[in-house]
Each structure stands twice: as C-alpha cells, then as structure tokens.
Write a protein that binds this DNA or RNA. Structure first.
Lengths: 162, 162
DNA sequence: GGAATTAAGGATATATCATATCCGAAAACG
DNA sequence: CGTTTTCGGATATGATATATCCTTAATTCC
C-alpha cells in the first residue's frame, strides 16, 4: 500500500506556490526543474490539483499555476486526495457472502465488521491529514530551512516565471 | 493506495481460526471453500501469517492452521502487516535535495517536513489497527451474526477438518 | 510400510496500475 | 503571427498484485 510519488510532488509544489507573491504564477517547467522531476509527468499531478480547484492556471508566457485559496484554507488531505483519489485503502469484497451456511437470500443489516474496523483506521489517517493546513507546513519550513536558502529559492523560481 | 485483497482474506480467516475448538487445525482448502477464494493464492496469505508467528501449522490429514496465540493477544495491525508488510505508505525521495539553490554538501538536520506529516498520519492509521484485538472482532461477529448461521458455519468447517 | 493429505516455497503466467513520454488543440501574450 | 503555456488523449514501459502449477517434506491413517 504505497502512495503515488505524485503525492509527494504535489505537496512540495503547493508549499512553493504558497510562498509566491500575490498574483504570480509558476510554470510546470520551473517547478520540475526546482525539484528535479520529469516535467511531463509532474504536469499530470498539477492537472489533478487544478481539477480539484486547489490551484488556478493561466496560459501563455508568464503563465502557470498559483493557489486558488489562501494556504490556511487548504489542508493536506485535499492535496493528497486530489492526486491519489478519494477511494478508501480497504475495499470489502464481502467474502462472508460466500459462506455456504448462509441461507438463500440472507441480507446483512450492517456492513462487514472487518470492513468497519479497516475503514475506521482509514478515517484516522484522513483525520490526521485534514488537521494539517498548508500554512502549517509553510510555517515549519520557514523555521527549519535556513533563511538564505529559502530566500534564494524564491528568487530562483521567480526569475523563471518571467 | 489500495491494500492487497489478501489482507481481507487473512482477517476473515483469523476470525474463523479464533472460533475453533482448542487444538483443532483448519486446512487451506476448508478456509478457501468457506470464503469462496482461490485455494493456491490464499495459501500465500496463510504462509505470511505463519512467518509472522501468528498461526501454527501441522502437516498431513487433519493438518492445517490454528492460532499461535489467544485472540486477545493478536491485534489487527499484526495481521495486516504480516501480509502487507511494514513499509510506510509514504516514501520520501527527498526531492528538496534537488533544489539548485542549496549549497554543495548541505546536510539537513531533520527529515523532510512533508514526510514527517505523512508519517504521522500513517502512525494514526497503525495506532487504530493496533488498538483492535482479534477477540474484539470475534465479539462483534458473534453479536451480529445470527447464532444459527454462526454455529452451522463452525460445524461446516470442522467437518472438513476431519 | 504405503497411500493420501497437507504446508512450504519456487517458478511462471497474466492483469492491473504507476510511471513516463509524446503529441495536438486551445488559450494568452508580446 | 510566433512563442509559451495548460490540458487532455494516446501510447509505451516497468513494477506489482493476482493466480496457477509443481516439487519437496512432513504427518496421518490404513
């Protein structure tokens, strides 16, 4: 049960977008080069963010992506689900229904007890991600990343944004 | 990020094994037929449980599997990790290291902030599973499954155990 | 002792999905 | 108009889940 690498990419890209000056866009090319990622494939992750209305886009030179909402209004779960999908990690195939001792046409009142427990764990995972805002990540990063690296990184990407 | 179907199979099989009379074994064949599963492939899941020392095995006719510990000493996480592995769902490829603005030889003191959050969510998932014992599942099942179906199911599998 | 049964594990085949690249269309900008 | 960009479709490739088959060794029963 491994998350797509696009999840990691999307989170890091959102962190950069969150630090952009008001109104500026950042292209796929700039984000790919900054992180050392394949541009064409990263583009798919960014498209997912766009479809989830987490980022806005504009075309043409100096176009690209920017956040559609303030970083405090975006949580980790939104980003993760945008690229990974909203499907639960455990799917119940209802194998109890194959039990030959069950009478014909017997109908269960509740979902399978095993599935309920697995779904509860899945919810705990999602709850944790829901509680972390993108602004929290940016706060942590600006504390931990040396300020000169942090600053020159944004100068670097903005130079590429024209 | 989907769990293997073997996880579902293993959990249901453990629930049945937990209800067996003391000292009895149940074969792969019986467990596969009870749940309508491919015998050869289910065998791989049971082998995983065996390698994790969750079940004991014996060969020959009337051989098969039984729990190695009382159901109250086995939790969901043990079963899930036995077949799914212990690897975290999020793997950090440290793409921040590709940032061209980082000085040569710069070394991060902490693991990536993104990874720390994703791992925290992963721990929340594991914690939930760790807190549920196999005996809890059996308790729920014996409450919810009509007693005649519950009883005839064990008669059915025990007949197949010789 | 011999036949049947069983778990264990290796080898292999198939299907699904993640990863990755390429291309054409439409939009924005100078 | 020419360049740059997002977007979506098409396609290729690699890894992994799913599934089956076969051999070996251990155990039980006759």
């Amino acid at each position: 049960m491994i998350l797509k690498s696009q999840v990691e990419w999307a989170l890091h890209c959102c962190a950069i977008l969150a630090g952009l000056p008001e109104g500026r866009y950042l292209s796929t090319k700039a984000l790919a080069e900054l992180h050392g990622l394949p541009k064409e494939y990263l583009s798919k992750a960014l498209q997912s963010l766009s479809q989830a209305s987490l980022v806005e886009t504009t075309l043409g030179p100096s176009g690209g992506y920017r956040l559609a909402k303030p970083p405090s209004d975006i949580n980790f779960l939104e980003i993760v689900e945008a690229v990974e999908g909203k499907a639960r990690s455990f799917t119940c195939t209802n194998i109890r229904a194959n039990n030959p001792c069950r009478p014909e046409g017997y109908c269960d009142s509740k979902p399978c007890a095993v599935a309920r427990i697995m779904w509860e764990a899945d919810e705990a995972w999602r709850d944790t991600l829901r509680r972390v805002r993108l602004s929290d990540l940016v706060g942590t990063l600006s504390e931990e990343v040396p300020s000169d690296i942090w600053r020159s990184t944004f100068e670097w990407v903005l130079k590429r944004a024209g």
